[in-house]
């Protein structure tokens, strides 16, 4: 995953301007900001409110409603373990427990070295090849605990499979 830029008001304004004229621009703007900065920084809220003629409370309400939008920068890689029913039928809960103990983090936390943030997700659409995980934007299927360890080692070294 690309390095996350530190907050820059100029850069943020230029991202918002890309979406200024489309209908229902708030989600595209938020995705744009998060792609650049890795999260939705607090100073972004008044900028968004101003750009879309909304109150800051309304913007904050949207940011907090959606699972995707973060308030803090994640680790270098984001590991999402699916825990929906199809993956449960193939051992997803055990895989999640393994991921927690292997990385020494709980859900939503980042490893001490900043390499991984562990998250859970309800369905990645890979339900015939369960259990599934997503690392950044790369999907993996039939992920055994051993395979997960190998994948994490690859990403830690910066050589994705």
């Amino acid at each position: 995953m690309a390095d996350r830029a530190p907050w820059s008001e100029d850069r943020a304004r230029s991202i918002l301007s890309e979406f200024q004229d489309i209908r229902g621009a708030l989600l595209p703007m938020l995705h744009g900001l998060q792609e650049e900065f890795g999260c939705i920084d607090d100073p972004a809220i008044p900028l968004l409110a101003d750009a879309l003629n909304l109150s800051q409370a309304e913007v904050h309400g949207v940011v907090s409603f959606y699972e995707d939008f973060r308030k803090t920068r994640p680790g270098r890689h984001v590991l999402k373990v699916c825990r929906a029913e199809a993956c449960q039928s193939m051992g997803a809960e055990a895989l999640l427990a393994h991921a927690k103990s292997h990385l020494s983090v709980d859900r939503g936390e980042t490893t001490a070295d900043g390499a991984f943030t562990l998250e859970t997700v309800f369905c990645l659409g890979n339900c015939a090849l369960s259990p599934a995980v997503l690392i950044d934007e790369d999907l993996f299927g039939r992920v055994s605990p051993d395979r997960l360890d190998a994948l994490l080692a690859d990403y830690r070294e910066g050589v994705p499979a």
Partner: peptide
């Protein structure tokens, strides 16, 4: 357009709210 990790947005009126830029 891309959603943002809310299952409820598969419900049609919630999806419309989300498309309009609001809480789903």
């Amino acid at each position: 357009r891309m959603g943002a990790g809310a299952y409820i947005c598969g419900e049609e009126t919630s999806m419309l709210e989300s498309l309009e830029g609001r809480r789903g």
